[in-house]
């Protein structure tokens, strides 16, 4: 499910089935030598999370991404967000990012870190292949969480 009116209505009608939420965390680096890499990473992450949402449409709600500037601490915002999402009825909250520094928060949150792959230079078929491979890596993380509960 995407965070759109149509999907959210579906969500409200099928609340017990949609128990998982993905929050993409996108780091924005505006420095001269970081801005390009930052845009590539953001593009990759948003493509990948959309792809995952497509696969697990009936169980996962994809939130609009949280964007933050490089070096700004996110732990407080993430804690609050996770708490509110759980109050709203989601059992599993996954934060997905390609910013390595956030892996430090793995003790308190489920942070899925994936190194970014530059998708901009690829044609559609290769891009799709890469996203499928990445998805295959993420699926075990999800199924592990789902089978716990």
């Amino acid at each position: 499910m995407l965070f759109t009116v149509k999907d959210v209505s579906d969500f409200l009608a099928n609340k017990p089935f949609i128990d998982t939420v993905i929050v993409p965390l996108v780091q924005i680096d505006l420095s001269e030598d970081g801005i390009k890499q930052s845009s590539s990473a953001s593009d990759y992450l948003l493509n990948l999370t959309n792809f995952i949402e497509h696969q697990f449409k009936g169980r996962i709600m994809l939130m609009p991404p949280i964007t933050y500037l490089k070096g700004v601490d996110q732990s407080g915002a993430m804690l609050l967000f996770e708490q509110k999402l759980k109050e709203a009825g989601f059992k599993h909250v996954f934060f997905m990012t390609s910013d390595h520094s956030l892996t430090a928060l793995q003790q308190t949150h489920t942070v899925v870190w994936l190194p970014s792959i530059p998708l901009e230079s690829m044609d559609a078929t290769v891009k799709n292949k890469i996203l499928e491979d990445q998805l295959a890596q993420v699926i075990p993380v999800f199924s592990a969480k789902w089978s716990q509960a």
Binding site: D10, F17, I18, H54, Q55, F56, K57, G58, R59
Partner: peptide, 8 residues
Amino acid sequence: VCKHLGCT
């Protein structure tokens, strides 16, 4: 597309 809630 799954006929339940649209997963793959």
